[in-house]
Design a protein around this nucleic acid. Structure first.
Length: 568
RNA sequence: CGGGGCGUGGCGCAGCUUGGUAGCGCGCACGGUUCGGGACCGUGAGGUCGGAGGUUCAAAUCCUCUCGCCCCGACCA
């Protein structure tokens, strides 16, 4: 491609709305433009990158035996009502009516459609396993689209679905996906991590996320640098550092704590560490109040709590509700003497002694409160792991960091095959439900994550495999016949060698050409300029900003050699 | 949904408090000089000031409503 013909509207000024690096740079570099909140147009550079990413995905999916489909994004309501997700998806689903008033929706994911095909067409275990995939558009009416391509309402997803006759088959299909995903993210040049994850509304038992560490991400990931343990904060577990309590079991007593409400204030006032307090939270769970107890320095993990309660329908109680139930304001609550209300305590309180909690009387706290002596409550792991907690497998302090989710694999099991009655005959001639898995990759997110990961003050630095072009030939004197002829020659030959090449033949000053080439992140630049009179050209590597000068006769070899130094 | 911010040529912004001919930088077009790190000079094109209603002799500016976008939170596959 000749740059003079290519549409690359680069910007000097940064659009005011763009905050995260990938959003800012993709706009500036002329990759994308915004159409609405969470809706973006891909311009030619982005499109080329996306197509390369899709091709990598396609190759790896095909390699493991996946078969490519293409399903409609426009879905009738009936299959969604069958699976129960017409209601479950709530406001996140775009819904519309056709001219006759029938309900339709825009697909957020395609378990329903694929399951309906499998149900109708697969009759025998002999036709299993199947791995079906597509690279297709998804629509999700996100409550808050943000950060450019990272959280959008329309995006491209590679989604795949496995159908097996049994659990063992599913395990195999799942493993195939995990291996393929590793290969895909490696080939895209991403530094990624596989972490244990919560399956959320997808349902199913086991799931893992593929994440890229970045402050622009929205997932919190707990990881151990020593043993490799890694999990989404929603389900991460850790050990505890021991807290020493005073020996013996003293009778608790009330102390006056005027105006001391928060854990922090009480800690300072009574001169005891936060870890020796009991944090009392009141939640309304399906209309019933619940007292949740945590160590003073711990935070509640709502996903874990949802798991323990087998309900996601809960909310913090309002101050007036708390007053009515406890006869005290939040800030002076505790479990001692509580009878009518259900209580749940985090495991970190098990075996502790002589703690401090609220007295259920404004401005009073209790000291020397001992679980199981002064109150009883069932224990469960409902606390959120914190930075520095000892790793559950090796004891090393764990890290907690933000990450971008680029892929997610789930063992669904029977969730959709039972609700949608998808069965086949097994070897014994019995109806047997399909055992399913589902697997997703956010295609644009790979590009955005790569830009988050690899950028500098000059702009984007893309891995070779997903850069829109691998080499840009910067022709500094396009009006010089000899220079031009040589540039054209390089251009032809590089393309002939399978290297995507962009020829900057624009009538622009050198500075503009250099800045643009660096901004859009082309891995290698071949510069034809004044050194041509000595029979030399320059090869500039974007990632390390190194320039080597080589004779023109060796330029092609030099380009290939340097390109091949990138492992990507 | 709660909180905050912003809508003025393609992009970045000023003007609004105190109503009175819509401005600056970049970009764009043309001419000239330049040409290895986002050049310089000159000339020029381009704006229903997000939209609707109201107040006023007069509204970008004041009032009401409304739409959109961004950020924080809630939420979230």
């Amino acid at each position: 491609m000749r740059w003079s013909k290519l549409f690359v509207p680069t910007l000097r000024d940064v659009p005011a709305d763009a905050e995260v690096a990938s959003h800012r740079l993709l706009l500036r570099a002329g990759y994308i433009r915004q159409l609405g909140a969470g809706i973006y147009s891909c311009l030619p550079l982005a499109r080329r990158s996306i197509l390369k990413i899709e091709q990598i995905i396609r190759e790896e999916m095909d390699r493991m035996g996946g078969q490519e489909f293409y399903l409609p994004a426009l879905n009738p309501d009936d299959i969604w009502k069958e699976s129960g997700r017409w209601e479950a998806m709530g406001d996140n689903m775009f819904r519309l009516k056709d001219r006759t008033g029938r309900d339709l929706c825009l697909g957020m994911t395609h378990e329903e459609v694929f399951t309906s095909i499998a149900r109708d067409e697969i009759r025998s275990y002999r036709n299993l396993p199947q791995i079906w995939y597509q690279i297709q558009v998804k629509f999700r009416d996100e409550p808050r689209p943000k950060s450019g391509l990272l959280r959008v309402r329309q995006f491209t997803m590679k989604d795949s679905y496995s159908f097996d006759i049994d659990r063992k088959g599913l395990d195999h299909s799942y493993d195939l996906h995990e291996q393929a995903y590793r290969k895909i993210f490696e080939r895209c040049g991403l530094e990624y991590l596989v972490v244990q994850a919560a399956s959320g509304a997808m349902g199913g038992s086991e799931s893992e996320e593929f994440v890229v560490f970045s402050d622009a991400g929205e997932d919190w990931v707990v990881s151990c640098s020593k043993c490799g343990y890694a999990a989404n904060l929603e389900r991460a577990v850790s050990n505890l550092e021991q807290v020493a309590d005073p020996d013996g079991t003293s009778q608790f007593s009330e102390v006056h704590t005027p105006g001391q409400k928060t854990i922090e204030e009480v800690s300072t006032f009574l001169k005891i560490p936060k870890s020796r307090q009991i944090k009392s939270l009141v939640l309304i769970v399906e209309n019933n109040p619940y007292l949740i107890l945590l160590r003073g320095d711990h935070q509640l993990s709502e996903p874990k709590l949802a798991g323990v309660l087998s309900s996601e329908i809960f909310r913090p109680a309002m101050p007036d509700e708390i007053r009515e139930i406890f006869g005290a304001d939040p800030g002076s609550l505790g479990p001692v003497g509580i009878k009518e209300i259900r209580v749940l305590a985090d495991k970190a309180l098990e075996g502790r002694r002589n703690l401090v909690c609220g007295a259920n009387r404004d401005d009073y706290h209790l000291v020397n409160v001992t679980p199981e002596v002064d109150f009883t409550a069932p224990y469960a792991d409902i606390r959120e792991v914190q930075e520095g907690d000892p790793c559950s497998s090796c004891g090393t302090p764990v890290k907690v960091a933000k990450a971008i989710e680029v892929g997610h694999i789930f063992k669904l099991g029977l969730k959709y095959s039972s609700s949608m009655k998808a069965t086949v005959l097994n070897a014994e001639g019995q109806e047997s439900p399909l055992v399913m898995g589902s697997y997703g990759i956010g295609v644009e997110r790979i590009l955005a994550a790569a830009v988050e990961l690899y950028n500098d003050d000059l702009g984007i630095v893309l891995p070779r495999s997903i850069a829109p072009y691998q080499v840009v030939i910067t022709l500094l004197r396009p009006d010089d016949e000899e220079h031009r002829a040589l540039a054209e020659d390089f251009y032809e030959q590089l393309n002939a060698r399978g290297i995507d090449c962009l020829l900057d033949d624009r009538d622009e000053r050198p500075g503009v050409k250099f800045k643009d080439a660096e901004l859009i992140g082309i891995p290698l630049r071949l510069t034809l300029g004044r050194k041509l009179t000595q029979g030399e050209v320059e090869v500039f590597s974007r990632a390390d900003r190194e320039t080597v000068t080589v004779p023109t006769t060796e330029a092609l070899e030099a380009v290939e050699k340097i390109l091949n130094q990138f492992p990507l």
